[in-house]
Design a protein around this nucleic acid. Structure first.
Lengths: 138, 138
DNA sequence: CTGTATCCGCGAGGATACTG
DNA sequence: CAGTATCCTCGCGGATACAG
């Protein structure tokens, strides 16, 4: 990437690493599941209880996706009733380092983020000139 | 949050900070726009050129959302033709620290992430017992 | 217990045309 | 230049039923 401006690789579409990650863990449940697996191995039913509002279908689908992408491993115990363990891979644990940093930021700034919510300078149907965040013409 | 287990606040739904952030910047374009604004102030048309595959509608919508959430500021110059500057707020710059860590990880592990893609242990229609990642019964 | 299969609603987001 | 307004598609994800 030597000599490559940021705007350039951002413009690469599928080749953009940021988009790549967002496509993998930017969905509704992946980060939640990864966070649940951070402390250690969990089985399917434990994950269901930990994330009550996820549907069975989406939990399975999310786990398959994370497994396909190499972030978690899946271990089947051929017992009856069946048992399946899920665990972060080395890649998954590696990801949890910066991801944990982001999560920590969110927890630390939770109140601030909620409080920061305000009216945008322009509302639909309203002329932009009727609002404050204005600068003098150059 | 003293004495509160992770699984508990994860289960809080709307009260979960992780979900809160994902709802705000977990969409297709927010992180890209934030990254473009990281070096400094940018105007609307510059952002469009920097992110060619974003539609005008989505750029506007993403900018409004980020502004509403307090991550960026919007400054209108009442000139003709009009000019609008976008810039990270203190909150936005604060967010870019851990977010930058994640982006750095993605860039550093780009090849690994792409290479990690493999077959899941179970494919639809295939019995789980026909695949390797198996453990001995307890 | 750990899934699969099927149906379906809803909303994110693209395309296009128009405006101050 | 910097948006709005409108229409429309597509697929995420919920609900439900069934299976090994």
């Amino acid at each position: 990437m030597a000599g490559m401006m940021k705007a350039e690789w951002l413009a690469l579409g599928d080749a953009c690493p940021v988009r790549l990650l967002l496509d993998r863990i930017g969905d509704r449940w992946s980060v939640l599941v990864l966070t649940e697996l951070d402390p250690g191995v969990r089985r399917f039913s434990e994950l269901r209880r930990s994330i009550p509002d996820i549907s069975q279908r989406m939990l399975t689908q999310t786990l398959r996706s994370l497994e396909t992408d190499g972030f978690i491993s899946r271990t089947v115990f051929p017992t009856v009733p069946p048992r399946v363990d899920y665990e972060l891979t080395d890649l998954g644990r590696s990801l949890m380092v910066p991801l944990g940093g982001l999560i920590d930021w969110v927890k630390a700034n939770d109140a601030t983020v909620r409080g920061a919510r305000r009216q945008p300078t322009t509302m639909p149907g309203e002329p932009a000139s009727s609002r404050p965040t204005m600068a003098a013409a150059g």
